[in-house]
Amino acid sequence: MQNITHQETLRIGSGQANVALRLLPFINKLNNKYPNMQLELYADANPQILEKLLDYKLDIAFLTGAPTHKDLMILNSFDDDLYMVEPKKEEYNNCLFGYKKDSTHYKFLVEYEKNRGNENFKTIFIENYEVMLGCVKNGMGKAYLSKRIIDKYGYSNNLILTKLPNGMTPKV
């Protein structure tokens, strides 16, 4: 980042989970502290955001995981409780929901299911967490999401939430 007090434009990138949870409060703080600064916001999956950050097309980014690239500095980190969410129906479709094919949570869910011997699932990508949760509730499949997203959209009592055992967390 350039000198924040003299920077005219701040380009911010974020993966979708962080957009839903953290981006708006961050933008509000920036706007209050630097009302004349122009903000440019980019939301995409983590690999694309990381690529833009490393290409200096972004000044700051919210990413899932802890990138270890030598040109990056982690300014703050957040822990999220991640849960597999399933419908309360006894039988439901063998389908995995993800935000995008290369989203961190989706890739982890695929790996987790394959390690359990489930290789014959179908996939649906939905770029909206509320719609994704509604589909899970209706028996269309399962997803892997932050508890804060599940709570934000009011689905905590409508789904089966399974906290996966230690050591079963996404690797990015």
Rank of each mutant, 00 (worst) to 15 (best):
D81A: 02
K33Q: 14
V19I: 13
N32W: 09
V172S: 11
N115M: 03
F97C: 02
P67I: 01
A143V: 03
E113I: 11
E113A: 12
F62Q: 02
N32T: 12
F62S: 01
G141S: 02
S77H: 08
L21H: 04
G117L: 10
I160H: 04
L21T: 09
Y92F: 12
F108N: 11
L24K: 06
F125P: 06
G13R: 00
Y56W: 12
L161S: 14
K142R: 08
F121N: 07
N138Q: 01
L145M: 04
M84F: 02
E86L: 07
L53Q: 09
N3T: 13
C95R: 04
T64C: 11
R22K: 15
E90D: 03
N46D: 05
Y144L: 02
L145Q: 02
N36T: 14
E91Q: 14
P165W: 00
L30R: 01
S146C: 04
N46L: 04
N31P: 13
F26S: 10
D80P: 10
N3M: 15
V172K: 02
N93L: 10
L39D: 09
V131P: 15
M73C: 13
D59K: 02
G139D: 00
K52G: 06
D55H: 13
N31V: 14
P170K: 08
T68S: 07
E113C: 14
Y129K: 04
S14N: 10
F62D: 04
L133K: 00
Q48I: 11
Y106N: 01
Q2D: 15
E51L: 11
K122S: 04
D151Y: 02
T5P: 14
E86S: 11
K101A: 15
N128S: 03
S156Y: 04
G134F: 01
I60M: 11
K89C: 15
I12D: 04
Y129F: 03
V172L: 05
M1C: 12
K142I: 03
S146V: 01
R148T: 08
L50Q: 09
P87R: 02
N118P: 09
M168F: 09
N93T: 12
R148Q: 13
Y42S: 08
R22Y: 15
E130N: 06
I126T: 05
N32H: 10
D71E: 14
K152W: 05
P25C: 11
N120L: 06
E40W: 03
L82K: 09
I49M: 06
L41Q: 09
Y112G: 00
L133V: 00
L75W: 09
N115T: 03
I126F: 00
D151R: 01
K147V: 13
I160A: 00
G134D: 03
I27S: 03
G141K: 01
M84R: 03
N46T: 00
I160N: 04
Y92K: 02
L96G: 05
L23T: 07
N76A: 07
Y112C: 08
L39C: 03
E113F: 12
P87Q: 09
E91T: 15
Y153P: 05
E51F: 11
Q48M: 14
N166R: 14
K142M: 06
E119R: 10
N76K: 05
T169C: 10
V19A: 12
D59W: 00
L39E: 10
K142N: 04
L58I: 13
N18S: 10
G65T: 07
L23P: 12
I4M: 15
I4A: 08
V85R: 00
T64Q: 14
S14P: 07
K33H: 14
